[in-house]
């Protein structure tokens, strides 16, 4: 289920749709802190190929707020994912 409490010193990351298929997980704990701009590289290291096949079309939320990973917003570029945060990989949606 969502809102899993991460282990101490870790943040929780949630994978949805194609991201969960690729990682074969719905959630896991990863070591914190991580700079938001380094998140995709950290995931690529754990799951080779995920960046091109999945992450490049995904958005990211931290504690239920979307973050802007490739915009000009300097504050968001320097955002650090801290222990206890809940991060989610959001692929293109398909409700209806």
């Amino acid at each position: 289920m969502v809102s899993t409490k991460p282990a101490p010193g870790h943040f929780a990351i949630l994978y949805f749709a194609a991201a969960s298929t690729f990682t074969a997980k719905s959630t896991e704990s990863l070591p914190a802190p991580v700079k938001a701009r380094d998140l995709f590289a950290a995931l690529e290291k754990r799951y080779p190929g995920i960046k091109e096949k999945v992450l490049n079309s995904c958005a990211v939320t931290v504690n239920l707020e979307y973050i802007d990973l490739d915009g000009d917003d300097a504050a968001q570029q320097d955002l650090v994912i801290e222990a206890g945060d809940e991060v989610a990989i959001i692929p293109p949606v398909s409700s209806g």
């Binding site: 692929p91 949606v93 398909s94 409700s95 209806g96």
Partner: peptide, 25 residues
């Protein structure tokens, strides 16, 4: 809703694999 709600559809085809749909494209 179709554009923004964080909901995903998995379609399983007869005799095939599942496919995650994306509304936007």
């Amino acid at each position: 809703t179709k554009k923004r709600a964080e909901i995903w559809k998995l379609e399983k085809f007869v005799g095939g694999d599942g496919v995650w749909r994306a509304n936007r494209d």
